[in-house]
Amino acid sequence: METVADNGLGGMTIIVATLLVGMVFAVLPLPDFVPAELGFLRPDWVAMVLVYWLIALPHRVGIVVAWVTGLLVDVLLGSLLGQHALAYVAIAYIALNLYQRLRMFTVWQQALVLFALLGLNQLINFWVESIAGDAHWRMWYLLPALAGAFLWPWVFLFLRAVRRRLVVM
């Protein structure tokens, strides 16, 4: 199949498109026959897509992209403006420092790091919520991070296939 080779605007379009797909997954309503409690397992898809691009193309996707994405997620979820932005900037900073090592890891080792990153993401969100409102820490706040870590290999393989097929550089 003919691929669209490019490293300019088109590449960014694909990155943005994957982030938007992540956002769709983030707000996808659960069907009625599924218990609402299952929502506690929903991983932060946007953060996972973001981490993939941070590792794969750190020269294109950096702190700024993370911050803007975070702001859009804040608007999407109705959280305080800046809450997800802060969390994403924090995980972007760590991912950008570790990307060379992360590339050497096997997917499951990466998943372990992902658990830490997504856990930090949850933690920052919880901190903000507890300062601004009254949230109580419950262990299930880490469930999305766990779910995210388990789903990471598939997200990783899928996004890598997308990147290679569409030659995003």
Partner: peptide, 25 residues
């Protein structure tokens, strides 16, 4: 990084305390 983090915190503070950001939101 620190700049963006600070900006986020500032935004959150303004958003929490005032309604100035409602239009942009």
């Amino acid at each position: 990084m620190a700049g963006f983090a600070a900006l986020s915190v500032l935004l959150m503070f303004v958003d929490h305390v005032t309604d100035w950001l409602d239009k942009s939101r």
